[in-house]
């Protein structure tokens, strides 16, 4: 269905009559003198600072303690049913008391009835405290981390990059991406920031060192 395709394109071309015919898009120089990274401190320290600023919960844990820490986090929240993607490493839930619902095409009602979701992530930008999920390993489809009210996310240090430019370059845009910077929030009422609206109202991050 083209609708007014030719009409709009013709108008665009007529509007650009002043642009020399020989000019190529690349002839318009884009100065990229901006920084790849901003804050020269240890990345984990920076990430924790940023996440806490967004009122996310954070814990730095060791690889060996991860199953225990996951179980403890879910217990602290009194999570009875936790949703996990199909390819979540089995040992992550090995100590969990809650019922584990693996996402074998769970319907929305089932997701809504769950108390929380446990996932990994793809890339993390420390400077902005941004966790990116790309539906890759241990992450599942987008709805999983959206409908339940509590998101427990495991971040490995090798997934952390300093800032936005490195995060963008590591990501594959053909995958559906969700960038998460803290729990859902709004400032729509008198610009007073309130954490927790439609997305998970609590985000907890376990950083595995």
């Amino acid at each position: 269905m083209s609708g007014s395709r030719e009409r709009v394109l013709a108008r665009v071309r007529a509007a650009l009559a002043d642009v020399p015919r020989a000019e190529e898009p690349e002839d318009v120089a884009v100065p990229r003198g901006y920084a790849r990274a901003h804050t020269p401190v240890e990345l984990v320290e920076l990430l924790v600072d940023r996440l806490e600023d967004y009122k996310a919960l954070t814990r730095r844990v060791s690889e060996a303690d991860l199953p225990e820490e996951i179980a403890a986090a879910l217990a602290r929240r009194s999570v009875g049913r936790v949703v996990v993607p199909t390819d979540l490493p089995g040992e992550w839930t090995s100590r969990v008391d809650a019922a584990v619902l693996t996402d074998e095409a769970l319907d929305i009602a089932a997701l809504d009835a769950a108390d929380g979701v446990l996932t990994g992530c793809a890339v993390v930008a420390a400077e902005t405290g941004t966790i990116v999920l790309d539906a890759g390993p241990a992450q599942g489809r987008r709805a999983l981390t959206l409908v339940p009210d509590y998101h427990l996310c495991v971040v490995r240090v090798d997934q952390i990059v300093p800032d936005v430019p490195d995060a963008v370059s590591r990501l594959d845009p053909s995958r559906p991406l969700t960038w998460i910077s803290g729990p859902s929030a709004t400032s729509d009422i008198e610009l007073d920031r309130v954490e927790g609206v439609h997305g998970p109202r609590t985000l907890e991050v376990l950083i595995v060192e």
Partner: peptide
């Protein structure tokens, strides 16, 4: 904010 809480990107359908 340093970053808004959520950004979604999608390419066609998955």
């Amino acid at each position: 904010e340093r970053m808004n809480p959520y950004t979604s990107t999608w390419t066609g359908v998955t």
